[in-house]
Design a protein around this nucleic acid. Sequence first.
DNA 1: CTGTTAGCGCCTTCAT
DNA 2: ATGAAGGCGCTAACAG
Lengths: 347, 347
Amino acid sequence: MDSMVKLTDVARAAGVGYGTASRALSGKGPVGGDARTRVLEAARQLGYTGDATARALREGRTRTVGLIVPDMTNEFYTSSAEVLQDVLRTAGHHLFVATTGNHPDRDHEALREMAARRVDGIVHVPVGPPPANPLPVPIVELNRYSGRNVPAVVSDDPAGVSELTELAIGAGYTDIAAIVGPEVYSTSRDRLAGFKAAALSAGFDENAATGKRFRVVFSDFSADGGARAMRSLLDDPPQAVLPLSSRLVLGVLRTAREAGISIPGDLALAGYGDPDWFEIWGPGITTFAPPLAEMGARAAEILLDLINGNHPAASVHRIPGELRLRGTLAQADPGHKPGQAASASGR
Amino acid sequence: MDSMVKLTDVARAAGVGYGTASRALSGKGPVGGDARTRVLEAARQLGYTGDATARALREGRTRTVGLIVPDMTNEFYTSSAEVLQDVLRTAGHHLFVATTGNHPDRDHEALREMAARRVDGIVHVPVGPPPANPLPVPIVELNRYSGRNVPAVVSDDPAGVSELTELAIGAGYTDIAAIVGPEVYSTSRDRLAGFKAAALSAGFDENAATGKRFRVVFSDFSADGGARAMRSLLDDPPQAVLPLSSRLVLGVLRTAREAGISIPGDLALAGYGDPDWFEIWGPGITTFAPPLAEMGARAAEILLDLINGNHPAASVHRIPGELRLRGTLAQADPGHKPGQAASASGR
DNA sequence: CTGTTAGCGCCTTCAT
DNA sequence: ATGAAGGCGCTAACAG
């Protein structure tokens, strides 16, 4: 394994001084056109690759931003991460990644590691409360907000889920159940708030006193959790179910198939998120799609601002998502009697 | 923004010398039990976090490995990446990530960047031929192999796809079409080879001279590509279709739904990969599932070996995957007449 | 315009 | 067991 060629090697080969070579390569200082070409040529020939670790130490910055997510496997995070990375790369930054598995201790550990590596900034999907001593590094939170005093970029779930719920109500369903994740996450709270707001303002209550009933089932965010939650609903099934994350949708679908429940024939469904298969499952899954790509881009931009010393107001940026109407929960249909085990269930 | 506290600060606070503090923290040299506790305490109080950039420069290693993948959005890569990261973290390494979008120039650029950052090793999903001058860094290829003289860890697609094809043949279908990706990728070539081997050895040919016909449609690896490929088959549909990547499956399903083709009623299907929705789509999608997690783990282990100076034979490690039999292509059924637009298409 | 030099923060000999 | 000092490769400030 041949050791790396360094700046002095290039300088010697080009027959110029140490500093001159540096300036020629970086293009930052004055350097004779003659010397410049000789240096560039020598660097090319020797296959010179500047040592980023040395540069980082000297310059006090790494041109690296840290990304901390619960799970690389989750389309929900990677969709944001992909464009985040694009924006950052354009600005000359690269990505250092850590996952937490949603464990608070691994989360703090990741934060420490990033700080130790002197990343220029961090994009953080927080899990649990922030660590005691704040880091001397710009941070922007993504997707969830921890209450810490840093900017956060999230989907406008209260509005989106509220619309989704209104859609179900407008379609005539009078017994609706939502399945949500743990309340420790801001995402769960936001989605729940959207659901409740729409239900309550339409005259629904939890006891069916008005003849319009809503229910909430808590679960973790996994497919298994969704399957369990759906199973718990089996004794007294609602007319429509709203699993408020794509993994919860998956779980619900699993249980429905096991129990022989046809969707939307026996049970209407509206979900959250929009992994590519939602479109081709059965008659298509009606859903609220958060603006994952845009969130990634915004997070990157805000972080770059922070890195460049600008101080955007530290607050929660809610970006609106989009309702996607498909077959598992159709639009309000005058004269339609829902709850009656329906129509053609699709091919 | 308070600047970082450094070793001298800790040393001064603890009332000891510079080097003593260093030894106490790293635990590597001899140091008086008395001084040790004072240093540790001081470090804790000051919130000392060693500077990884300085350490990297000094020690000549970064405890970082680079991961180069086409696309963070693809479950296919992230499933491997997740466990790769786990194994590496256990060994004290962290992950630096770059994506290529399958562009050869971005691929080489990523390689350069990693080298510049002096990562200790690279896990590489290659796109196109390797760059001219080899890097002085251990590399393991993942999922695809480029022909370079480095170890590669891949799924045993020839065997797996061959079995998958035999399954279709055993089920009695006599007109089978495979959809594969660009031949520049080893994955496409391997899967194609598996398909052809099984078809040929069962007496199939491309002209239906024997009454048993196989076809191959080339495509890119995208859902759109799969949709187009399926559309091209519509004039003269096969009895069974084998889209040999999960995104191709998605595209095929899209076209099938548009064209009103029922699966498996009108057309049997067996896929590749096993994203979580395969299980709950229609009657379940029969598929060959490559051992993504195991591949990630093996790649990590081999790379760690390389980093530690061991020299495993540079070769292609093919890890066997698993056939998952579900409803879109059922097991051979004596007395079953396929191609006759079938049975109950399931819910 | 160019060569020289002082650190960036740390680990590691080398004396003591 | 401890303190002092060199140097990892680089950039920037300074002197010529």
